[in-house]
Computed example of a mutant assay.
Amino acid sequence: MYLDHNIVEEVLRKTTTIPTPTPLPTVVPTVPEVHYETLHDTGKRTLWVVCVLMGLSSVAFYAMAMRVPVQKRLFHILTAFITTFAFLSYFAMATGDGIGYHQYAVTETKQHIVTHIFNRQVFWARYVDWSLTTPLLLIDLSLLAGLNGASILVAVVADLIMVLTGLFAAFGHGDGQKWGWYAWACIAYLVIVYQIAQNGTRAVINKDQKTKRFFSLLAGFTLLLWTIYPIVWGVADGARIVGVDAEIVAYAVLDILAKPVFGFWLLTTHDNMSRTSPTIEGFWSHGVSSEGTLRVGDDGD
């Protein structure tokens, strides 16, 4: 049987449906929002206020040092150095130096898409300050108690570890790294507490009653303040619950109490106890003696 190909084409055209092409879905990439967590007017004013207070305290401590014999100036010099370093640190931060940024991302849990990128200011000048001033504070307390050299060295090294691991935690990537460094800082702080509270209390037993009571009050005051520092870090740089301005204000209050207030309390009480306070002779007071030294040009004739 012969089939007309024209008829076949017409039948196929009527019975066959040609699908209409649909456009491909357009994929729109998610662009994360970038945020900057920085200080504002409150934070700037606070930095300048503390800078001025640290500077005035330093001048006052140096003046107090000049009023006592050189043999009794050790506490004055150490305490003046503490506020001097703090003054330089706050001057740096107030003028915009000693500040870095730590970047971290916030992701959508289900799709693991980065939705927000935050850049938070980290005041690394503050950690430089702490690495210099807190060992001097510990030396003040240790000398007041009569702590032995080995315990002082352990306390100072633990203090440096505490400050440096705190700095590493502030710039840590990921929660594991950040809180891991924070844990090491807390362990180092416990070593400091043991040296001052335990060994310091044992050492000061040999002192007079007034010195024992004064050391207990001053050491308790200092350790209480130092315990608040990691709490502030935890809610600021750690969990980022509070903003940069609130962080600056909190540290400013603690620094004023831990340095100028500590210093005035130590020095005024020490000066009132001058009859019983120790004196330092030898090189500290008189320098290198000229007796028995070789003089250039003497030929022995």
Rank of each mutant, 00 (worst) to 15 (best):
T38W: 11
T17A: 11
F283K: 10
S142E: 01
M66S: 14
V154K: 12
V52A: 13
Y90L: 05
R275H: 11
S89M: 09
H76G: 06
D97Q: 13
I248S: 10
V261M: 11
G43K: 08
F262C: 14
W181D: 01
A150N: 06
H116D: 12
F61Q: 14
V8G: 07
I82L: 04
V288W: 11
D41V: 11
W179D: 01
R13L: 10
Y101M: 07
R73F: 05
A197L: 11
L225D: 07
I248T: 03
L167D: 04
L24K: 15
D208S: 15
I231G: 13
T15Y: 12
P260L: 05
G243M: 02
I280F: 15
T227F: 14
M93P: 14
F118N: 07
T165F: 15
A252K: 08
K212S: 09
P230R: 06
F214D: 03
V49Y: 11
V11L: 13
G172A: 15
V261L: 15
A239N: 06
F214Q: 05
I187N: 02
D175L: 04
L223Q: 03
K72P: 05
T165M: 14
Y189I: 00
R213V: 06
Q71H: 04
V163S: 07
A150W: 12
F221M: 05
R213F: 13
K259C: 06
H40N: 11
S289V: 01
F75W: 11
A183Q: 04
L47G: 01
I187L: 14
F61E: 12
A219K: 07
T279M: 12
A246N: 07
V128F: 08
L53Q: 03
P278I: 08
K14G: 12
L267G: 09
Y229E: 00
L56V: 04
K259W: 07
F85M: 09
H102E: 05
F123R: 02
E10L: 08
P19E: 01
T20V: 14
P25V: 02
T46I: 02
G43H: 06
T79S: 10
G146F: 09
